[in-house]
Deep mutational scan, measured.
Amino acid sequence: TRVETATETAWISLVTALHLVLGLSAVLGLLLLRWQFPAHYRRLRHALW
């Protein structure tokens, strides 16, 4: 049971790290898009909202 718990903890930390990385890359990508294509971003936002 001790090994299982350790594996579970490792998986949880791995998944958390993955989610953090994905979230950060998504935010960075959005910022980059907004910085590179302001007109396109505004049009996209206008279409979405």
Rank of each mutant, 00 (worst) to 15 (best):
R2D: 13
V3S: 02
V3D: 00
E4I: 11
E4T: 09
E4N: 13
E4A: 14
E4F: 14
E4L: 10
T5G: 00
T5W: 00
A6D: 09
A6H: 08
T7S: 10
E8I: 03
E8Q: 06
E8V: 05
T9S: 14
T9I: 14
T9Y: 13
T9R: 12
T9Q: 14
A10K: 12
A10W: 05
A10V: 14
W11Y: 13
W11Q: 07
W11A: 01
I12T: 14
I12R: 12
I12A: 12
I12C: 10
S13M: 13
S13N: 10
L14P: 04
V15E: 01
V15S: 05
V15R: 03
V15C: 11
T16Y: 05
T16D: 02
T16K: 03
T16L: 14
T16C: 13
T16S: 14
H19T: 03
H19L: 02
H19G: 03
L20S: 08
L20F: 13
V21D: 00
L22A: 14
L22T: 08
L22C: 11
G23L: 13
G23W: 10
G23V: 11
G23M: 11
G23A: 10
L24V: 15
L24K: 05
L24A: 13
L24P: 05
A26T: 13
A26W: 04
V27P: 01
L28I: 05
L28R: 03
G29M: 13
G29E: 00
L30R: 02
L30M: 12
L31Y: 12
L31I: 13
L31K: 02
L32G: 01
L32A: 11
L32T: 09
L32N: 02
L32P: 06
L32D: 04
L33M: 11
L33C: 15
L33F: 06
L33G: 04
L33I: 08
R34W: 02
R34M: 07
W35D: 05
W35R: 15
Q36P: 03
Q36R: 15
P38D: 14
P38G: 10
P38Q: 15
A39W: 08
A39L: 13
A39P: 04
A39E: 13
A39C: 05
H40S: 10
H40T: 09
H40N: 09
H40A: 11
Y41Q: 02
Y41L: 10
Y41K: 03
R43T: 10
R43Y: 07
L44C: 08
L44G: 03
L44F: 12
L44A: 07
L44E: 01
L44M: 08
L44S: 03
R45I: 08
R45C: 06
R45V: 07
H46F: 06
H46D: 09
H46Q: 10
H46W: 03
H46V: 07
H46Y: 07
A47Y: 08
A47P: 03
A47F: 08
L48H: 00
W49T: 01
W49R: 01
W49Y: 06
